[in-house]
């Protein structure tokens, strides 16, 4: 749950970079609302993910009898059109996509994008 709090803390900065946050799990609506409440989350939360959805994105599954099965963590940074810019799959508590890495990745991509646009403009202004 520390991961969810870390993203909440950086939500404003991510927003200025054009990045929104969405979290999802197999939790019921009631369970998800409890997570929102206890963690003080203000970003978008989805609930009721199915195994078919988990399979579609390649997550590992865990089982905690008698509670049942759940998704193991999987985290993605998506760009335009749903392009995967980064992915992280965990099989347990070790390994997460740190919010600082997301910020760094977006900053780097935006620098490259702006550099490309500037070069295009310069080439355009040189043409007769």
């Amino acid at each position: 749950m520390r991961q969810l709090a870390a993203y909440e803390k950086q939500k404003a900065q991510l927003g200025t970079m054009g990045c929104s946050i969405l979290i999802a799990s197999v939790d019921t609506e009631e369970q998800a609302r409890k997570v929102v409440q206890t963690q003080g989350l203000t970003y978008a939360v989805a609930y009721g993910c199915t195994k078919a959805e988990g399979d579609a994105i390649g997550v590992w599954w865990g089982n905690h009898p008698p509670d049942g099965e759940h998704m193991q963590p999987a985290e993605f940074l998506l760009g335009r059109g749903g392009a995967v810019l980064g992915s992280m799959y965990a099989s347990g508590p070790v390994g997460r996509m740190a919010v600082e890495e997301v910020i760094h990745s977006i900053e780097s991509r935006e620098r490259s994008r702006l550099r490309g646009e500037k070069e295009q403009q310069q080439q355009g202004s040189r043409q007769p």
């Binding site: 993203y7 929104s20 969405l22 985290e75 940074l77 760009g79 996509m97």
Partner: peptide, 19 residues
């Protein structure tokens, strides 16, 4: 929300958590 059709912004941090 239908992904990836309905991207809410240029970038999206999408976290599937354990629950």
């Amino acid at each position: 929300i239908k992904l990836p059709e309905e991207m809410p912004s240029r970038y999206l941090a999408l976290l599937f958590y354990r629950g």
